[in-house]
Design a protein around this nucleic acid. Structure first.
Lengths: 182, 182
DNA sequence: GTCTATATTATGATAGAC
DNA sequence: GTCTATCATAATATAGAC
């Protein structure tokens, strides 16, 4: 707990970065060690195996998700709007972690698949009280997934979001979201 | 052209299958050959490299997309509705091909990333005449991506679709889709 | 805690028999 | 067209010095 060693964080950052920019195939132990500026031995001191690296990344994601949830619940524009907008926040800490874990998930990492599924349930339960129908809730989650997917697809480059606010209005209206002012 | 050899198709099916069920990591030449019931040498006669395998899968996807497009345009319930419904058609030939190529794409295969991007443009252009606004069009594409993403995530198992028809109605209404009867 | 070997296995690809 | 070796390289992981 308390304060994780700097080198450990550097390695985890490097793992995440390579996953995002070049994909899972490129994220080998050698490559990650080089990216982090440590030797392979150094990396293996902190993470004894590749699975240990994955677990650490999932843990990071879970932590950031919890923080984000608190922020969303406090957002004056409403939870649902905050949620969709948040899924378009490419490049922030949370989005990077989710996308990186998503890459692992689409590669057969059972732990990561499970982590993403848990994440979806968490979001579902958090949004439920604010949306009138289950279908509306599903719509919101699907749009968020779509936005995420398009971000994830664009390996290494920043994707284009056209008119996010108009989209958010359209979705929240159609889904039947409780007005934040109400 | 004309009629591709049976063994070639078997290998391609095996490649696709392993990609879907176990992910890109598992889809090695050895594994695919075994899955197809041929030797590695046999596989390599038809596909000289891993990239050749990828290219063939992309070609299959492009072909199936073209066929699907014809069907969608002829669908009496409207192109947009047919499109969303089609993205939920887990397990059919087209969906399998797209998901498999998607797996390659999320692994840094430049060819596959390009192929998925092309696909998205194709869909965008095909739907455009039937949707009132660009935002509405974007909504439809994002929901489709979301549905696809959830299918793709669930490695090896079948995902749950709650009330697809209600979702389609909600999306097409919100997006402002030209009525098929009109 | 971090490093340099080194072992071990997996992977993509070649060569050549049948 | 399909097979059985075989090779070269790259990946994960270990051992042990500093």
């Amino acid at each position: 707990m308390s304060r994780p060693p700097l080198a450990r964080e550097k390695v985890l950052d490097a793992f995440e970065h390579v996953l995002l920019v070049e994909g899972e195939r490129a994220a080998t132990m050698d490559r990650v060690a080089a990216e982090a500026g440590v030797s392979k031995g150094g990396l293996l001191y902190h993470f004894a195996s590749k699975i240990a690296l994955e677990e650490a990344l999932i843990e990071r994601m879970d932590h950031l998700v919890a923080l984000d949830m608190d922020e969303m619940l406090a957002d004056p524009s409403g939870v649902a709007a905050a949620f969709i907008r948040s899924s378009a926040q490419t490049g922030d800490e949370l989005d990077r972690a989710i996308t990186a874990v998503g890459r692992l998930a689409s590669n057969g990492s059972a732990l990561s698949v499970e982590a993403i599924r848990r994440l979806r349930v968490t979001w579902h339960d958090a949004l439920k009280p604010f949306v009138e129908s289950e279908v509306g809730l599903e719509l919101i989650l699907l749009v968020s997934d779509g936005v995420y997917f398009n971000n994830a697809l664009t390996i290494g480059s920043v994707p284009e979001i056209a008119d996010m606010e108009a989209l958010i209005t359209m979705v929240t209206t159609a889904a039947g979201v409780q007005s934040p002012a109400a």
